[in-house]
Amino acid sequence: MTWFEAFGWLGSILVVVSLTLSNLRRFRTLNLTGSVIATIYNTAIEIWPFAAMNAAIALINIYWLIRLHRERFVSRTYAALWADVSDDTVQHTLREHAAEIATFYPQFDGSAGDEGRHAFLIATGDVTAGLIVLRRTGPDSAEVELDFVTRAYRDYSPGEFVYRDSHLMSDLGLVRLVVPRGTSGDDKHFRRAGFVPGENGLVLEAPTG
């Protein structure tokens, strides 16, 4: 096998591997890389139908990557749906993603009841992209018990929409949110959303003025 044949095989392998990925950005990126390689290879050996097909796939992937990048910063892409923790939809989401939630939030207890807690399903279209659960610690403060995003939307941080653009804090009369130390294994997510280190963990203060 020549190096150029190996190059062609690489394109095919990348396209196949991309189909196993649930993360939208990674799927599109890997699929684009594979289709570009396949286009170059099939053009070089003059297999025009496959060259044209892979070129079209590459263009489709470019379109979706641009769209996904733009939607990453558009608030209207998401909606925060207020619910009780005991609601069937919330409990279904907790059951479906129980293993991952236990990994990221080992202390979270979805059966602890609704008192003092607020749950928000983060939806995009008719798809649930994530779930946030807050627990009141005072009249104008709360702790983040759970901030879970499904694999497909993990690159697009719907949590940032909730904390920055959804008016969640003002609607609940909150001026302070805290992520206690040891709550989550992903501090970077909260820092991107505006949380800063505080005495008891990461803190988000509501804007004033």
Rank of each mutant, 00 (worst) to 15 (best):
M1P: 08
F4Y: 14
E5F: 13
G11E: 13
G11T: 08
V17Q: 03
V17W: 12
T20K: 04
S22F: 12
L24W: 00
R26H: 05
N31R: 00
S35M: 03
V36H: 01
I37P: 04
A38T: 15
I45P: 01
P49L: 04
N54C: 10
A55H: 07
I60C: 05
H69C: 00
R70K: 10
R70T: 02
R72N: 15
V74R: 07
S75W: 10
L81I: 15
A83Q: 14
A83E: 15
D84W: 07
V85L: 15
S86G: 04
D87W: 02
D88S: 12
T89M: 08
T89D: 15
V90P: 00
H92M: 05
H97A: 03
A98R: 13
I101A: 12
T103N: 09
P106N: 10
P106D: 13
D109I: 03
A112L: 07
D114T: 09
D114L: 06
R117S: 13
F120P: 00
F120N: 01
I122H: 01
I122C: 01
T128W: 12
G130H: 00
L131M: 11
V133L: 07
R136T: 15
P139H: 08
S141Q: 14
S141P: 05
A142P: 09
E143Y: 02
E145H: 06
L146D: 12
L146C: 11
D147T: 05
D147L: 12
V149R: 00
V149H: 02
Y153V: 05
R154I: 11
G159Y: 06
E160C: 08
F161D: 07
V162T: 08
D165Q: 14
L168S: 06
S170I: 08
G173R: 04
G173K: 02
V178C: 11
V178H: 01
V179K: 02
V179Q: 05
P180N: 02
G182L: 09
D186I: 11
D187L: 04
H189L: 14
R192Q: 14
A193Q: 13
G194I: 11
G194V: 12
G198F: 10
V203D: 11
P207S: 08
T208R: 12
G209T: 13
G209W: 11
